[in-house]
Amino acid sequence: MSMYSDKVMEHFRNPKNMGVMDSPDGVGEVGNPVCGDVMAVYIKVKDGRISDIKFQTFGCVAAVATSSMITELAKGKTLEEAAKLDNKSVSTELGGLPPIKEHCSNLAAEALHAAVKDYLAKRAQTGTRPAH
């Protein structure tokens, strides 16, 4: 038996929302290749909600699965709701993670929060909402 739950393996083998996004409204990239994991989350925002979301991840099985899960959880949520998603939401939805891999779920939540922050910063800069 694998150290990972079936749900983790399923998200690893068939990740949801994986890929790059053309002209995203917000980008969050966290992690460090030296530590072995980097996650990038790309979002599009429409009417205050995350209308589309994609991720790219360099990392272990848990890193890929938590990225996939956070994008599923965040899709369609308001920015406020997305900001509330945390590592617990991710690992619970995945049926738990091995203790040593918990930090992957932190990273996934951080990447999403960073993308939201990036979107808000860009909006503040232009003074208006990006046209989407």
């Binding site: 990239e29 966290v30 992690g31 460090n32 290749p33 951080e110 960073a114």
Partner: peptide, 12 residues
């Protein structure tokens, strides 16, 4: 460059 990605913030 591959190293020096912004953000980070998790400790091993």
């Amino acid at each position: 460059p591959v190293i020096g990605v912004k953000g980070g913030g998790h400790e091993h």
